[in-house]
Structures are given as C-alpha cells and as structure tokens.
C-alpha cells in the first residue's frame, strides 16, 4: 500500500513532537536532580549530593513502597489467578457482571474508594495504623489488571478443553489447577505481576488518604518533597523513583512485544 508522503511526514513530525513533550520534562527533572544549583544551571557543576540527601531523608519510603508492592502482588496473585480461571470457565452474563464489578475500583476515582475505606474501616485501629490498610487499597485497584492479564493468556490457550481432557484422565481439581492451568497462564501471570508492582509503586490517589505519618510510601514522600523541599532534592527524589520504574517498564514492554507487536501496555486509568 502506498502512503502519501505528506501524510507520513506529518505523522512523523507529530510523533516526534509528542515524544519531546513527554520525555523533555523527564530529562529536565533528571538534570535538576544532578545539578549543584538548578537556578545557576549546569555550569554550577554536577553532583550526587541531592541523591544522597534523598536517601538519608526518604530511604524508608522506598523500602516501604517495595514492601507494599510485593504484599499487593502476593495477594492479587493468590486471589486473582483462581478468579481469572473461574471467569474463563463461565463466559456468561453473570461472569461479565462479576468482572465489571471487580473493575469498579479502577473506573471509580481513587479518592472515592479511599474515603469509603476510611468510613468503613478507619475506626478499626490496628488496620488503620498499619501498612496493611494501604495494601488493601492497592489490591482493590490492581486486582482487575492481574485478572485481565491472566484471563488473556487463559483464553489463548484453549484452557477449558485442556482442563476437561485432564479431568477425563482422572486428575483432581487441585492437580489440574497446579499442573495444567497455572503453567498455561504463566505468561499472563508474569505480565499481571509486573503491572501490579508498577501500579502499586506509583499509586498516590488512594495512598494519600490511607497513609499515616508512619506509613508513608514513595509517592507520598514525593508529594511532601514537592511541597517543602528545594527543587534539586525533589528532582533527585523523582530520579530515584524513575530508576525504580525503569526495569519494570522495560520488562513489561519486552513481554508485550513478545506476544503482540504494538506493545500497548495493560496499565489503565491511574492518575
């Protein structure tokens, strides 16, 4: 098929402009985090002192974010993979309704979900003051992504037929689940896992209302630093966050291009 040259050039131009719009500010932030004095500019010299300062001030938020992400991942995997299998087995209207329901915490603004959690569970003291409260919020928000990724891999593998074949050979449900279903859905579970961790590490809307001074996560720390720290520290903190995201995004995209050329990722509404 022939493309008009004008069409191609216009497309390329806009694509490059959009790339600059998206990546330019990131580069600016990275530079600011590594510059002695941002207002003087690069000629003031490069330094790691801001990164070191961030580490001193906020290391706990970094570790906590990883902890919350891993706990969220554990819960979403344990409850999400079986749920995905049940949704695959029953492709009817009820099943669609259930999936629609489970997706509500993504469709509805995080602020509303957080308020609802506080109204119902905020007075349960041990829960309100622990990191578990944040994990609950993150699980609600990330579970649909895990289920969607796992379901996609289950449907591709004609898993219902495989399961029936294993059943006719006499395998119990537990055996079939661990011997047939989980291995077949492996790629979906890995994609889902990376998505869950990425989303959890960056989650702010829920976390801001759910956190306590003792349970700050990285994005909460970022918001604090943006409000109260000098620009270089805020930028250095952002840089640390970007470095944490980078391997996750690279992994996600690698997985996406393996299964699908475009590599459009499964991350949805989350700002």
């Amino acid at each position: 098929m022939t493309h008009s040259r004008f069409d191609t050039r216009l497309g390329l131009g806009i694509t490059l402009a959009v790339t600059a719009f998206l990546i330019g500010p990131v580069l600016l932030s990275v530079t600011a985090g590594l510059t002695q004095n941002y207002f003087v500019g690069l000629k003031s010299g490069l330094t790691f002192q801001w990164v070191v300062q961030v580490w001193d001030l906020y290391a706990d938020t970094i570790w906590r974010s990883y902890g919350v992400a891993l706990a969220t991942l554990a819960v979403t995997t344990v409850i999400g993979v079986p749920a995905a299998w049940v949704l695959t087995l029953f492709p009817g209207r009820l099943s669609r309704l259930l999936e629609e329901l489970l997706t509500l915490p993504v469709a509805v603004p995080g602020l509303a979900t957080a308020l609802a959690l506080i109204v119902s569970w905020g007075s349960t003291g041990w829960l309100r003051s622990s990191v578990a409260f944040i994990v609950v919020g993150h699980v609600l928000f990330t579970l649909p992504f895990m289920i969607r990724a796992v379901r996609a891999s289950m449907q591709g593998a004609e898993l219902v037929v495989l399961d029936e074949a294993a059943a006719t050979l006499g395998a119990s449900r537990r055996q079939r689940f661990f011997d047939i279903i989980v291995p077949a859905a492996k790629s979906g579970i890995v994609t889902g896992a990376l998505t869950v961790v990425t989303l959890s590490i960056g989650e702010f809307n829920l976390t801001w209302l759910l956190h306590t001074p003792l349970t700050k996560t990285l994005p909460v720390g970022l918001a604090n630093s943006y409000a109260s720290m000098r620009l270089e520290v805020a930028s250095a903190y952002t840089l640390v966050f970007l470095l944490m995201l980078l391997p996750l995004m690279v992994g996600l995209q690698w997985l996406a291009t393996r299964t699908h050329r475009t590599g459009s990722l499964a991350l949805g509404a989350s700002s």
Partner: peptide, 29 residues
Amino acid sequence: RVLMSLLIFPLAFPGVVVGFLVILTTGRQ
C-alpha cells in the same frame, strides 16, 4: 522500539510526578 518505549514510559508516572514535571516546565522557574 525506542520511540515506542519513550512514548509509553510516562504511563507509570503517578499524578504527583506529572504535576511536578508541569511545574518544572511551565512554573515560575
């Protein structure tokens, strides 16, 4: 590939980071 990655990378940024990037580019400084 690289272009796709660059276009998709900001997908994982939380809103606070986006706000900060807006300040960096169109803020007072």
